[in-house]
């Protein structure tokens, strides 16, 4: 478990980090919490020559209130996202999902930005970010651009972040007062989800937003379910038909934890449960 030798850079600003990325190009890799990257390096599935550590850039850490949106720094850890009072108040779904990531050790190291940039379809934060309509702020040599959630997740482990770019922060529209629940289905506690459903609802139920984890090569929105839930009552009977639509248009993987059809079944069952819990029913 020894990675290939690499150089290590620890810039203290985004500008420095971008300059280093520009200089080393393909040979460099950003390291945030290292909780996804280090296993990859240690198993020698990747061998960058330079690691650029964002850990020393203070401006990338923390959550701030920016009017209609919360701004979450890319280097904010899962632990801090979970416990942040602003997140709890305005984007409860993220707090709930962050609480379900891995275990306490990993939550103290792994970062919100790192998880989203890594774009593992089984990652727990993509679906909630998508459901909440998060916008991704990406810094590059030509300045900063903002990408909508729907355009950010491109494919398995692939996002809109370019090789010479850094995700600096994520802007999450406030969902103040919305109920939320992240229903994660696992076999053992420290596992990535087999399927998970991120649900946040206004009232019971005026409006709902549903994200699906591990139901395709990117996080997915269950739009048909969302539409059917508007005006539904927060009871088992009330949400049943809407939940039955949850797997529409999904293409989940088949692996040791379950075949695609089983995952689709789970998505429907878990959606119903997540919505009811989000609505406090």
């Amino acid at each position: 478990m020894i990675p290939v030798k690499f150089d290590y850079l620890a810039p203290s600003s985004v500008e420095e980090a971008l300059a280093a990325l520009g200089e080393h190009g393909d040979d460099a890799k950003i390291i945030a919490g290292g909780q996804s990257l280090l296993p990859v390096l240690r198993m020698r599935l990747n061998a960058p020559e330079v690691l650029i550590d964002l850990g020393g850039i203070d401006s990338l850490r923390g959550v701030r209130d920016d009017g209609d949106a919360l701004v979450i720094g890319a280097m904010t850890t899962h632990h801090d996202v979970r416990d942040d009072p602003l997140v709890k108040e305005h984007a409860l779904l993220l707090s709930k999902a962050a609480a379900e990531v891995a275990d306490a050790q990993i939550r103290h190291r792994g970062t919100f930005g790192g998880a989203l940039a890594h774009a593992d379809p089984a990652g727990d934060l993509g679906a909630p970010a998508l459901a909440l309509g998060a916008r991704f702020v990406i810094a590059g040599p030509g300045g900063t651009r903002t990408v909508e959630a729907a355009d950010f997740f491109v494919d398995l482990f692939e996002t809109a972040i370019g090789e010479d770019e850094i995700l600096t922060e994520v802007r999450v529209p406030k969902h103040t007062g919305w109920g939320a629940h992240y229903e994660k289905f696992v076999r053992v506690a420290h596992q990535w989800p087999i399927v998970a459903v991120a649900a946040t609802v206004r009232g019971s139920i005026d409006e709902a937003r549903i994200g699906l984890t591990n139901m395709g090569s990117t996080p997915l929105r269950a739009t048909a379910t969302e539409a059917a839930l508007a005006g539904a009552s927060a009871t088992e009977d009330g949400v049943r038909d809407a939940a039955a639509l949850a797997a529409e248009g999904t293409a989940p993987p088949t692996d040791l934890n379950g075949a695609a059809d089983y995952r689709q079944h789970l998505a429907r069952v878990l959606t119903g449960r997540a919505v009811l819990k989000a609505a406090g029913a």
């Binding site: 275990d103 076999r187 053992v188 506690a189 420290h190 596992q191 692996d255 040791l256």
Partner: peptide
């Protein structure tokens, strides 16, 4: 993929 349980 080889699922070992923990105390949790």
């Amino acid at each position: 993929d080889y699922l070992l349980p923990t105390s949790a």
